[in-house]
Amino acid sequence: MYARVLVPIDGSAASGRALREALELARHLGAMLVLLHVVDAYNLLLGSDTQTGFDAARLAMLEHGKALLEQHRQVVDAAGVSCEVVLREVLSSRISSAILEEARTRQCDLIVMGMHGRNGRTRLALGTDTEHVLRGARIPVLLVCAEAPEP
């Protein structure tokens, strides 16, 4: 059913919980996980006073992304699930566009991503990137809340 599952990783509690859900699915289905971290260098470009400042901040973000992906790859490997890691950088597009593009390029069957919204009752709680992925995805998207909602 799902052979390749894309899991965007940003270091948040929500993406960590999404990874745990994706791991369970992958174990039961024999699926491969594609862990994706997207570095948004565009916002750095807007806020940087100098090229040197931009370059240093960009390199730090890329190194952080590599470390984050390696940390999560080790968790996936320890669980006995195969995975691929992808580090992407965007300079002119949205993070959500990179997520959708990677899902298509890597022929994923499902996207499992964390949701940062506080109550899930309004579209505003989803966040713009999450909503963009939901609207643009041609495959199923499983949203995972950072914490279980209160009754």
Rank of each mutant, 00 (worst) to 15 (best):
A3P: 01
R4D: 14
R4G: 03
R4P: 03
L6Q: 12
L6K: 12
L6V: 08
L6I: 10
V7D: 03
D10W: 05
A18H: 06
L19V: 04
A22P: 13
L23C: 06
H28N: 10
L29K: 14
L29S: 15
M32I: 03
V34R: 14
V34C: 13
A41F: 01
N43P: 00
N43I: 10
L44V: 04
L44W: 05
L46M: 09
G47D: 08
Q51N: 02
G53R: 06
D55R: 15
D55T: 09
A56E: 12
A57L: 13
L59S: 11
L59G: 00
L62K: 14
E63A: 13
E63M: 01
K66N: 04
A67D: 08
L69E: 09
L69T: 08
L69F: 11
R73D: 00
R73E: 13
V75A: 13
G80L: 03
V81D: 08
V81Y: 08
V81E: 05
E84S: 13
E84Q: 15
V85F: 04
R88L: 02
E89W: 05
L91H: 15
S92V: 07
R94Y: 13
S96W: 08
S96F: 06
E102F: 00
T105I: 06
T105L: 06
C108K: 12
C108E: 11
D109Q: 09
D109G: 10
L110C: 12
I111N: 01
M113T: 03
G114T: 07
G114Q: 08
M115L: 13
M115D: 07
H116D: 10
G117P: 07
R118F: 12
R118G: 10
N119D: 14
N119Y: 11
G120I: 00
R121G: 01
L124N: 11
A125F: 04
G127C: 07
T128L: 09
T128H: 14
T128M: 09
E131Q: 15
R135I: 01
G136C: 12
A137M: 05
R138Y: 00
I139N: 03
P140H: 06
P140S: 05
V141W: 09
L142T: 10
L143A: 07
V144S: 03
E147R: 12
E150T: 02
